[in-house]
Amino acid sequence: MENIIIYVSLAALLVCGVLAVMLRSIIKDAICLAAASAALAIIMYTLGAPWAALFEVSVCAGLITVIFISGISLSHDTKAEVRREYDDKRRMGVLPVVLVVAGIVMIGAGAAIHFEMPVAQRLVQDFREVFWNSRQADIWGQIIVMLTGGTAISVLIKEEKKKS
């Protein structure tokens, strides 16, 4: 049962990802990206990573989609609305072919070297202890990344000073 969920979600992730690239309308692209995030979160939860699944679904499928849609609405492009000028369907049409060819090449390479990665025994540890105690430099880095993000946004959004 678990394997079926994983394979179906993996297929959904791939399909949503390719659709996000190939669709013409940018809003549909953002929604496909959110669906891909949800599929990835299901995979993570089934494989035993509940914290990461929580972050993925709340931040990527939620916050980033909101950022995209607000960006799209702020830049309402009246002239080239239906993306005909961007000509995406023709330019991206070759993507499924490229992916299938790459997939066949990789499967061939994997079979040639008899690829086999044994799955190790799952260590039993508390996530909170691992995160707060043994990743301290990371946490400092994350704090500074968030401060940097705040600084960056305040610089990019600042109003131009009126020339007096």
Partner: peptide, 13 residues
């Protein structure tokens, strides 16, 4: 990698 990203983000801005 995390500090590399900090350097990268500040340089973009």
């Amino acid at each position: 990698y995390v500090f590399l990203e900090i350097v990268g983000i500040t340089s973009f801005v």
